[in-house]
């Protein structure tokens, strides 16, 4: 029985997760409209729960974190190809879809961030929340912004263009 070095064992563990395989081949991209809608809706609900009642802070946080974890898959497997991709061809149409999606996202993020900057202190003052709770609420706001960053471009891209049937590409 051969003894593998520690580094090789760690490599084997990493390979078993399937993550290195993701960079060997181009990902099979899908609209992922349903996942984006669920992530966006539940994330918004989670943030609202955290803001509405002090007792719901941690329930809202759990919902928000779950949605954020779901939304991580959207840039990896969704319709938008990343900048400086090493194993995918990003042609002019892909770049146009990406640019329009992020141009739609940026004003939304800006407005939500401004509402949060003004709204979270106001909520904390009106509900007599403690300082640690207010700080936590601010952190949840940042997670909500990251969830929006993942979901809104995917929603825009998936609704902007209907996916072409892959069978059509055979002729």
């Amino acid at each position: 029985m051969t003894t593998k070095p520690l580094v090789q064992r760690l490599d084997d563990i990493a390979n078993r997760t399937g993550v290195p395989g993701l960079v060997l081949h181009p990902p099979r991209r899908r609209p992922l409209r349903g996942l984006a809608v669920v992530s966006f809706a539940l994330g918004t609900a989670g943030m609202a729960m955290a803001c509405i009642k002090p007792g719901w802070l941690w329930i809202g946080e759990m919902v928000l974190m779950a949605c954020f974890l779901l939304s991580i898959w959207l840039p990896l497997k969704g319709p938008i190809k990343p900048w400086m991709s090493v194993n995918e061809r990003v042609d002019e149409r892909d770049a146009e879809i990406r640019d329009k999606a992020y141009l739609t996202l940026l004003p939304i993020i800006l407005i939500v961030a401004l509402l949060g900057l003004c709204g979270i202190p106001a909520i904390a003052w009106l509900q007599q929340r403690s300082a640690p709770e207010t700080v936590a609420l601010g952190g949840f706001g940042a997670i909500y912004l990251l969830t929006l960053w993942n979901t809104i471009p995917t929603l825009h891209a998936s609704w902007q263009d209907e996916p072409a049937d892959e069978e059509d590409d055979e002729d």
């Binding site: 061809r89 042609d91 002019e92 149409r93 892909d94 263009d161 072409a164 590409d169 055979e170 002729d171």
Partner: peptide, 17 residues
């Protein structure tokens, strides 16, 4: 479509669109 896409440097789906 695939051959044309390769020749002009785009994805086959783009030729379809």
């Amino acid at each position: 479509r695939k051959a044309l896409a390769e020749a002009v440097g785009v994805n086959p789906q783009t030729i379809g669109y």
